[in-house]
């Protein structure tokens, strides 16, 4: 499990490798917050290599989304497979976030 970050100006892309769960959500959240403090405003989280997300991981995304909006930015989520979409739909978080199948499509107009 781990996170890979790419930064290009105010664009931040974070790939989540493995799971986003109670055991690593704080590391993930702090990593993104640090980048936001350093000017990242367009934030893309790529779940192409993610197995599953638990409620702690979903909560971290909600928290980050609020913080990024407060700073005038936007959070987009990409690479969600059918399983992950199920989680967002069950929790109605598909109404809160913009979800994209792939990173390329998420970057259009971003």
């Amino acid at each position: 499990m781990g996170f890979a970050i790419e930064r290009d100006g105010d664009l931040l892309a974070v790939s989540v490798d493995g799971q986003l769960v109670v055991g690593n959500r704080q590391e993930f959240k702090q990593l993104v917050l640090d980048e936001v403090e350093q000017g990242a405003r367009r934030v893309l989280i790529d779940f192409s290599n993610t197995g599953y997300i638990d409620s702690s991981g979903l909560g971290a995304l909600v928290s980050l989304g609020k913080r990024i909006r407060e700073r005038g930015g936007e959070l987009r989520l990409a690479g969600l497979n059918e399983d992950l979409r199920t989680l967002f739909e069950l929790t109605r978080l598909d109404t809160l976030f913009k979800l994209y199948d792939a990173r390329d499509t998420a970057l259009v107009g971003f």
Binding site: D54, S55, G59, T91, R92
Partner: peptide, 22 residues
């Protein structure tokens, strides 16, 4: 908690709901 109109915006409160849903 999932019946709370503010539930979607909450950072917590999804764990028990997910157990039941899954």
């Amino acid at each position: 908690l999932c019946e709370d109109p503010e539930w979607v915006e909450r950072e917590d409160g999804r764990g028990v709901f997910l157990m039941h849903a899954l």
